[in-house]
Design a protein around this nucleic acid. Structure first.
Lengths: 241, 241
DNA sequence: CAGTGGTCTAGACCACTCG
DNA sequence: GAGTGGTCTAGACCACTGT
């Protein structure tokens, strides 16, 4: 997973934080000490610490050191680009996926048009899946997987994990995404599928891109409002745009 | 604003992207060219490009170059730690603020307890403000500003911009925040203030920290569902935690 | 004062892209 | 093969923190 030195250092420190070897509120060894510990240059150590900084695991304080931040499950971000299968495994949920639709298309289906106006004539796979946890519906995912670059998708793959197929089988380099969270009134079908007791649902609209800036997936995720939770860690921007 | 070389380079490139001098879809000058252009080392140039990468302004492609990403207002993130006054200025909104409450307290008010259990006995300022745009209520902000570290707050300051006071007058170094987005049923008072037509509202719960890891502000922001919009840019995590 | 993180430089080698 | 970004090193000076 972590093939470069800086990533391995970051991974090692992250694991030690997770296991309490570096306790919340305490300070990591100094950069010079880490330099010796890992046999790396200071720049490499600093790159590793930068990753932990971005994740919100540590805070660097000039003249003092790198302090380990407290993180309960209330503060650790669930954002970023994570697949449902990954979340399920990480959080140890008892989740299942119900494949409601799988269809090859030559252009964007109607329900996507409202949110993805510019990309009408793209071929792809239309997939709809209901995520169920402990017998209760949580999320309705509508995906439009663009082809190219994705080929060879089957209902079986869609029922398991798209991301595992993309990354491990197709060797696609999933890189970044833009997400937008809205609250909308849904139609009767989604209302029933999610067993809502009112007409509002949270919808997360995502555009997903590969490292070469190719768009490969559009997603609409409808969440039950009472179960929706989005956690984020943010640092104050210094850049004016 | 940008006092170090890398930040100045990042700022300069960001401005050129904004003004279309570096067009979306095109490539920036190579790192070696930027090195000459700005009279900086390659490491410094790379640090600047890293900031633009984090912001989602560019994507780096090995062997090719740094590609300028397209960004409409639909893709540019409004997240991060930004004050309402800053947003108002940036987006050119016709916004006003109505100060509903300003009170010094010795412990956490009731309405905060539900979300901030661990921090009961903290002295601070209880502030409530209604954000109005074009005569329509948008957001109800409930703030609890901790004292220490914040002192000397007045209703007048609270009606304008807390952040300007924190950073410019008190010279506080605002650094990071954890945020959680939920959808909840609100009471009659909030229902009326936001002029809701149903009982659900989006609430954003924030804990805000200084660079020395001191907590200085707790915030509950209640949004009208029909006007709530949260935009985010995310890169795929490589780190397992 | 010694130790810390913040910044910057100069140079090196690698893997990748493209003609 | 030339050019690109990715990684890493060694060394330097600074500003800030503590004693």
């Amino acid at each position: 997973m972590a093939r470069v030195k800086a990533d391995m250092i970051a991974q090692d420190i992250a694991t030690k934080i997770k296991h309490g070897i570096y306790a919340a509120g305490s300070f990591l060894p100094s950069e010079n000490q880490l330099t010796e510990l890992y046999g790396a240059s200071r720049a490499t150590v600093r790159k590793a610490l930068g990753e932990l900084l971005d994740l919100g695991l540590i805070q660097k304080i000039k003249g003092k050191g790198s302090k380990v931040l407290r993180l309960d499950r209330y503060t650790f971000p669930l954002s970023g680009i994570t697949s449902f299968a990954e979340l399920n495994r990480k959080l140890g949920m008892n989740a299942t996926t119900e494949l409601l639709k799988f269809k090859e298309q030559t252009k964007l289906p109607m329900n996507f048009e409202r949110y993805f106006e510019e990309e009408k004539d793209l071929a792809g796979y239309e997939i709809e899946r209901l995520r169920v946890i402990d017998g209760e519906p949580y999320v309705l995912d509508q995906d439009y997987v663009l082809s190219p670059p994705v080929t060879g998708l089957t209902p079986d793959i869609a029922a398991k994990s798209l991301y595992a197929y993309f990354e491990q089988d197709l060797q696609l380099d999933i890189s970044y995404a833009t997400k937008e969270v809205n609250v909308i009134k849904v139609d009767q079908r989604i209302h029933d599928l999610l067993q809502l007791d009112q007409e509002l649902a949270v919808v997360v609209i995502s555009r997903n891109y590969l490292a070469d800036t190719t768009e490969f997936q559009l997603t609409l995720s409808y969440h039950r409002p009472d179960r929706f939770r989005f956690v984020d860690f943010a640092r104050r921007q210094k850049l004016n745009f």
